[in-house]
Amino acid sequence: MPTATFTTRMDVDLKERLQKIAGYDRRSASFVANQAILNLVEEREATRQLVETGLMLADQGISISEGAIHAWMNGPEDAPFPEPDTFEK
């Protein structure tokens, strides 16, 4: 894949920590920084995809009541996530 140079300013302390981790992995600091940026970009893109699916569900009117979510949050750790209980269309 073609690469391009991207210059950024970074806290001195953060740069040292990054170089230390890169050293443990026998990688360049540039490689490790690239991986971190890639993770962030991919997480944002995956969130965006989820938002698009959410908008589709909102248009279909399929959702879960606030009470069911509240009960799940305050229930036991292994409680199953509530199923949709509201169908508005």
Binding site: L40, E43, R44, E45, T47, Q49, V51, M56, L57, I62
Partner: peptide
């Protein structure tokens, strides 16, 4: 729609996999 971790700590792969399942169901 989502409760987003603003630090971007969530796994993109886990989000994508969940999204695929949701789209399959709905």
């Amino acid at each position: 729609i989502d409760v987003r971790d603003q630090r971007g700590y969530r796994s993109a792969e886990a989000l994508r996999s969940f999204d695929r399942e949701l789209r399959k169901n709905y």
